[in-house]
């Protein structure tokens, strides 16, 4: 069951200049009652996006048409808290392909990579520049180049590298899935079990 192949792209970005955005903000627990993986985008950042009467909260960035694009830019320690993969599903299902931050929580990072959502970790300084660029021009374009592990502010040409294991990079580029891989090495797993029995 392959995931979508990750293709490098250019896009504008949506800024969320908040630190420690936790998984309960990304997708509140009361929306975790589904038994499929679909539709979580609707409730992404639910309680920041909608008030108690389900009316959009105007000044929240996802409700502001000024900002669009496939890249979400967020403050440091994005995705802390719960292991709910629903958080990664929600971000991806909403239409984001990349999240840029200066720091990601471990489990969120892993969950994202398993779902074709690329976490791009940049330095604090570079993150400030990215936010500043969007501030200047909400339509500012950014280039995500997974092959070369580069994230670029198109207008200024400023570029930064980002880390990803070569294995995960191959998986994303080719749409491979860890589960298929593990199933393919079942013999090895059985041999391991026998050896330690």
């Amino acid at each position: 069951m392959a995931i979508d192949k990750f293709i490098s792209f250019e896009s504008s970005a949506v800024p969320l200049a908040i630190e420690n955005v936790d998984t309960d903000q990304i997708i509140p627990a009361r929306f975790l009652k589904a038994t499929t993986r679909d539709g979580f985008g609707e409730n992404l950042f639910r309680d920041w996006r909608f008030d108690k009467n389900n009316e959009p909260i105007k000044d929240f960035v996802l409700n502001d048409d000024t900002y669009t694009g496939k890249i979400l830019v967020a403050g440091k320690n994005f995705g802390s808290g719960s292991s709910r993969e629903h958080a990664a599903w929600a971000v991806h299902d909403y239409g984001f392909k990349v999240v840029v931050s200066s720091f990601f929580a471990d489990i969120f990072r892993g969950n994202s990579l398993n779902n074709g959502l690329l976490p791009v970790q940049v330095s604090e300084e570079f993150l400030v520049k990215v936010f500043a660029e969007i501030d200047k021009d909400p339509n500012a374009q950014f280039k995500v180049d997974l092959e070369n592990q580069q994230f670029t502010i198109v207008a200024t040409g400023e570029s930064t590298g980002f880390e990803i294991s070569s294995y995960k990079k191959e998986c994303l580029l080719n749409g491979f899935d860890d589960i298929d891989y593990l199933i393919s090495i079942k013999d090895k797993i059985e041999a391991f079990e026998e050896a330690r029995a």
């Binding site: 292991s83 993969e85 969950n111 398993n114 199933i183 090495i185 797993i189």
Partner: peptide
């Protein structure tokens, strides 16, 4: 803790794939 894709891995193969912390 693990995500749901990893729950699936463990169900299917009793293994997960993780970098050593």
């Amino acid at each position: 803790g693990i995500g749901t894709s990893e729950v699936e891995m463990v169900l299917a193969t009793q293994c997960i794939m993780q970098p050593k912390p």
